[in-house]
Simulated scan of single mutants.
Amino acid sequence: MYIDLSGKRALVTASTGGISLAIAHGLAESGAEVIINGRSDDSVNHGLETLRSALPAANLRGVAANLDSAQGVETLLKQVAGVDILVNNAGIYGPQPFDEVDDATWDRFWQTNVMSGVRLSRALLPAMMTKGWGRVVFISSESARNIPADMIHYGVSKTAQLALSRGLAKYAAGSGVTVNSVLPGPTMSDGFEAMMQEEMAKTGKSLEELAKAFVMAERPASVIQRAATVEEVANMVVYVCSPQASATSGAALRVDGGVVDDIV
């Protein structure tokens, strides 16, 4: 399948590393103009350098803005006139016992993981609908379906993204704009690699070996019995953003390796 996104402009939020940088790479490789976003100029510049090194001819630019508040989203929107593709990836996570998660933490997760996508979709979706073409994608998580006991606040925010995505798909019905969620499972991202550095040094095992051991211990329902690569997740996102995915909307598309034990 040849995916051609020439002439399309894409915004990928929090896209300076990991899964989101792979998504930006995939969209740019398919011909889209890609706007990457990070919290700081340094992180944005690093992401741009990484992409330009791999794709010298790519049409790229970056905007530094922290999307955990309305003000941060407004900062981004002032520099983004309009897009054809919006990938809502901005998010935070972290384990914490439920009884220790205070209101401020709940609000911080809600503002970053949910409201950033609400605000950006509210600002950018109507123009897509008027134009008759667009793609909105929320990067959720298998934790939206398989709520982790040690990250209930995170799981709730990810489930909310599924409801938001489905509702927006109905809102955009018949307009030529699709709205979907993609649900990664255990993935060998930059964050996972950083977490495993000490273990790799201590055991001499590769990242792939440690990731597989993690999956078998913590997600034994996995069908592929390993962690996904960031490219495997990005492939699904790029497809959903493509013209070929025009009949897919309102869906929660899992790239979880079969961790969620469900046939639908």
Rank of each mutant, 00 (worst) to 15 (best):
M1I: 01
D4F: 04
K8T: 06
L11S: 14
A14R: 10
S15P: 10
G18A: 05
G18E: 03
G18F: 05
I19P: 04
S20R: 15
A24M: 05
H25A: 07
L27T: 10
A28L: 05
G31I: 04
V34T: 10
N37F: 08
G38K: 10
R39E: 14
R39W: 11
S40I: 13
D41V: 11
D42S: 14
V44N: 12
N45T: 11
L48C: 06
L51G: 11
L55M: 05
N59H: 13
A64V: 09
N66H: 12
L67M: 07
D68H: 05
V73G: 01
V73I: 08
E74A: 13
V80F: 06
V83K: 01
I85T: 01
N88M: 05
N89K: 03
A90L: 06
G91E: 10
G91R: 06
G94S: 05
P95D: 08
P95K: 10
V101T: 15
T105L: 15
W106D: 14
W106T: 15
Q111P: 13
Q111D: 15
T112Q: 08
S116W: 01
V118D: 08
S121H: 00
S121Y: 00
S121T: 15
A123Y: 00
A123G: 03
L125D: 00
A127W: 02
A127E: 15
A127T: 14
M129P: 04
V137R: 07
F138A: 00
S140K: 02
E142A: 05
S143Q: 11
N146Q: 08
I147T: 13
D150G: 03
H153F: 05
V156F: 01
K158M: 05
L162W: 03
L164G: 07
L168K: 11
V177L: 06
V179W: 04
S181F: 06
S181L: 02
V182G: 09
V182S: 10
F192T: 13
E193F: 00
E193G: 10
A194E: 15
M195G: 15
Q197D: 13
G204D: 09
S206Y: 11
L207I: 13
E209H: 06
K212C: 07
F214E: 12
V215E: 09
V215T: 11
R219V: 04
V223A: 14
I224N: 12
R226F: 06
T229C: 08
V233L: 01
V233F: 00
N235C: 02
M236N: 03
V238T: 10
Y239E: 08
Y239Q: 08
V240H: 04
V240T: 11
V240Q: 14
Q244V: 03
Q244F: 01
A245Q: 06
T248E: 00
G250E: 09
R254C: 08
R254K: 04
V255R: 01
D256F: 04
D256I: 02
G257C: 03
G258F: 07
V259G: 01
D261H: 08
V264I: 02
V264H: 09
V264Q: 03
